[in-house]
């Protein structure tokens, strides 16, 4: 598919957000081009999932700007928001399938919500998406009857049912065995190559990140530590990046005064 790879489809500028008084994102910038797969990595608490929720408009930032497909998500009309929702697919870590609906009904839900397609067309499209994720014929099952990997694939089918321009994943292969995780990675690559979708993938799975990423952004303490290609990230001499790649836990130098405050002050809060 022909794409203009210079077109920026996701633009985050100087994003700052707090939980209470604690700063979670501290001036994060992000620039994702059309057809790009951007992986966001970082240790636990680095702010990677928080960044994703902000890009999706689920959280309001303290400062900063987020543009999706050229539109500032905090400055668009209700109708523009509705249109944007149709251009975005999200695959949540848990799958987030509705347990009271069959797999087929779950996948068809966005089509019923956002389009006026007739039932036969909706059936064909939703089952076609199940075929794409290798769940052909599973439409009548309930989510509780699926394995963890199948739930992730069903959620992926639902996230692409509207042929979105932007696709977001939160830990797509977490908790899956290596074979199933690799299948999900292959699917992500196929969707980019055939549909030209642009994607943001939040993951802590290194193998997966290196396989699918066009670029990787590493967050640390709410800041953008580094953004680069897989090779650039692998060659980085930044200690925090090297720790992450070598799966070393973080050992900040202890500040004795702060440590004592954390243990003893009744009203202590993280800043």
């Amino acid at each position: 598919m022909e794409t203009n790879n210079n077109e920026t489809v996701i633009e985050v500028k100087d994003l700052v957000t707090h939980y209470g008084q604690r700063k979670i994102l501290d001036g994060v910038d992000l620039d994702v081009k059309k057809g790009e797969i951007r992986v966001i990595m970082g240790g636990s608490g680095s702010g990677k999932s928080t960044l994703l929720w902000h890009i999706l408009g689920l959280y309001q930032p303290t400062e900063g700007q987020i543009k999706l497909l050229g539109k500032d998500i905090h400055r668009i009309s209700f109708n523009e928001q509705l249109q944007l929702k149709q251009d975005i697919g999200v695959s949540f870590q848990s799958g987030a399938l509705f347990s009271s609906m069959t797999v087929g009904e779950n996948v068809a839900l966005p089509l019923r919500e956002f389009t006026e397609l007739d039932e036969n067309t909706i059936r064909i499209i939703s089952r076609m998406k199940l075929e794409v994720v290798n769940l052909g014929g599973f439409h009548k099952l309930m989510p509780s009857q699926l394995s963890g990997g199948m739930v992730k694939r069903a959620a992926l089918a639902r996230s692409i049912v509207m042929d979105p321009k932007l696709l977001f994943f939160d830990e797509p292969s977490a908790g899956l065995d290596p074979v199933v995780a690799s299948e999900i990675d292959d699917l992500i690559l196929s969707l980019r190559d055939t549909m030209g979708m642009s994607m943001v993938v939040v993951t802590h799975e290194l193998d997966s990140a290196f396989k699918i990423a066009d670029k990787i952004t590493v967050l640390d303490n709410g800041k953008n530590l580094i953004t680069g290609t897989v090779e650039e990230i692998k060659k980085s001499e930044n200690k925090r990046v090297m720790d992450l790649l070598q799966r070393r836990s973080r050992h900040d130098k202890l500040n004795p005064k702060d440590y004592l405050k954390r243990l003893t002050q009744e009203n202590y809060t993280l800043t």
């Binding site: 598919m1 389009t115 397609l117 067309t121 064909i124 499209i125 076609m128 049912v161 042929d163």
Partner: peptide, 14 residues
Amino acid sequence: VEYIDSSGIAAMVE
């Protein structure tokens, strides 16, 4: 055809 979405493919299936 430069681009076809799922509803277009569904029309072929129908």
